[in-house]
Design a binder for these strands. Sequence first.
DNA 1: AGCCTAATTAGTAATGGTTACGATATAAGC
DNA 2: GCTTATATCGTAACCATTACTAATTAGGCT
Lengths: 157, 157
Amino acid sequence: MNPIMNISQQFAAQQYKLTPQREAIVKVLLDNEKDHLSVEEVYMMVKSTYPHLGLATVYRTLELLCELHIVEKMNFGDGVARYDLRDNDHDHMHHHLICSVCGRLEEIKDDWLLELESRVEREYGFKVTDHRLDFKGTYQTCNRTGCKREKDCKAVS
Amino acid sequence: MNPIMNISQQFAAQQYKLTPQREAIVKVLLDNEKDHLSVEEVYMMVKSTYPHLGLATVYRTLELLCELHIVEKMNFGDGVARYDLRDNDHDHMHHHLICSVCGRLEEIKDDWLLELESRVEREYGFKVTDHRLDFKGTYQTCNRTGCKREKDCKAVS
DNA sequence: AGCCTAATTAGTAATGGTTACGATATAAGC
DNA sequence: GCTTATATCGTAACCATTACTAATTAGGCT
């Protein structure tokens, strides 16, 4: 099914109105589904096709999309929240590689933690509903020189 | 070795001065090593034994401790940075359980990811230097009723 | 097609965590 | 003790986010 139709139906089903602003924002997310856009980035991109748009609307819409499980809000320690479209099938299951050299952020669309989650349940009596797994490091193709300490310390892991 | 002596040596080794303020802050961290204190929490606790203390000093000191690898800065999505003492032996290796019901945050002092890290290196050409693994869910002892959606959406995962 | 009304938006002010800054104080080496 | 680079204090500035108000609009109803 056309993803925008799908999302539009989810809006209607919960009595949310599908305004042109919301539609434009969703379209930007779909066009950039590989990225993890910040609010400011989404704002800028939507502005180019819909110049009359308030920043607060972007905040409100992304929060709404989060509530509808259409996007996931996350924080990579650069001081801004970022949003990622959720897969219908894999739900919350993906991990990240964050390169200290080039800053690239790659997504691994796999769930490697099923084994560990059952172990947590067994050993700690803790039923996992969601998880987060990020790896920080460097790509072998990114030959690095010098010390990266400062950059790493400013960020929150 | 006395941990405060150890840290004091690390300060000296890098020509940082061991001021009473810094010592008081480190002492609070050592006294609460199970917790993940926020800046404000550290500030309050140090104030009780060292009333004449500026908030900015706490920020600066915690950043310094992070630079020296004595603490780790992290973000659990509640809007404030939190700091955790690093083990000398296990370095960055620990995971978290975060309970949606009671808000409890438990640390797992184990490294379950060595296998996955070598897999990342093999399959993605990515050399891991650090990682983060958090599980969200509920303790079986926390019987829950109702919907938790809203709370989860406000937070960043 | 044209109302009605609750939902939505724009614009901006307020908030709150964090950082920057200038003047004062102080730890450590001589 | 004196010197000086370093650290502290208090506060103002900063910036992402949220709250608020008046004006607009989508969608249901006739």
